[in-house]
């Protein structure tokens, strides 16, 4: 039997919002470590990986590892029935074909129980290599969202050039060109507003804005986003979920032939 409880439904609602435009179906793997999910989008250009650790839950019980195959659209719809402040319990029997979602209002006066049909999914899993990156940029997540949105008005791709002390995001299109330069913060009072740029070697790579705009749906989960970049490998766009885990997106670069 699997059962877990979170004090606020809000975080799981935001997590579903961050996933449902990119993937249609996915498997939540449940183990003693927590909940995790890994899936590529239908065109295999990007991959999303979510980890929600046991320690972040109020209660977490998992007698046996199980895989919960879900339709993301359905799960997101049901999650929307919870108020942000409701506490939420997820429950499933070991060999069951249902996932129960129980929402309880903070004053305990209203309890809603939904049951979602699970799917038998066979989803290809990729091994994510544990590697060092040439550059890591941390910046306010809202700023990154804005840059991706604004550059989409110009072109389909963004070229990211990282040098010591700053990053250039540039796009080219039929109507013209754009370049946004973000400089590393020299002095920041609030950590959430900081831009930090770690460079082991300068990099210059091109990525599809369409996918980056999908990734920025995770913005409400975290004040900061980190971008890890190395030559000729997928970009990692990571959002930490405070005290609970993370949502990480991987995006294959565009490569010049």
């Amino acid at each position: 039997m699997f059962e877990c409880r979170l004090p606020k439904a809000e975080v799981l609602k935001k997590t579903m919002d961050a996933l449902k435009d990119l993937i249609k179906e996915a498997v939540w793997d449940v183990s003693a470590q927590g909940l995790s999910l890994q899936s590529m989008d239908s065109s295999h250009v990007s991959l999303v990986q979510v980890t929600l650790r046991t320690e972040g839950f109020d209660t977490f019980r998992c007698d046996k590892n199980i895989a919960l195959g879900v339709n993301m659209d359905t799960m997101q719809k049901l999650m929307k029935c919870a108020s942000n402040d409701d506490n939420i319990t997820l429950k499933s029997e070991d060999n069951g074909d249902l996932l129960s979602l129980i929402f309880e209002s903070p004053n305990g006066e209203k309890t809603s129980e939904y049951e979602m049909k699970l799917m038998d999914l066979d989803i290809e899993q990729l091994g994510i290599p544990d590697q060092e990156y040439s550059c890591t940029i941390k910046m306010p997540s809202g700023e990154f969202q804005r840059i991706c949105r604004d550059l989409s008005n110009i072109g389909e791709s963004v070229n990211i050039t990282v040098v010591k002390g700053g990053v250039d995001f540039s796009a080219k299109g039929d109507i013209g060109n754009a370049k946004i330069h973000v400089t590393e913060s020299s002095n920041v009072d609030n950590e959430k507003d900081a831009v930090t740029v770690e460079v082991n070697e300068p990099v210059n790579l091109t990525f599809a804005l369409r996918y980056l705009n999908f990734f920025t749906k995770a913005t409400p989960l975290s004040g900061q986003v980190s971008l890890s970049i190395s030559p000729d490998v997928p970009l990692v766009v990571a959002y930490e979920i405070e005290d609970l885990g993370h949502v990480k997106y991987f995006l294959a670069p565009k490569i010049e032939n």
Binding site: M40, S43, H44, V45, S46, L47, E124, Q125, L126, G127, I128, P129, S157, T206, A208, V233, P234, F250, A252, P253, K254, I255, E256, N257
Partner: peptide
Amino acid sequence: KINQGRMDDFFKIS
């Protein structure tokens, strides 16, 4: 010409 890479080209099936 610029080609879009695919995740399968970078990460192996586990």
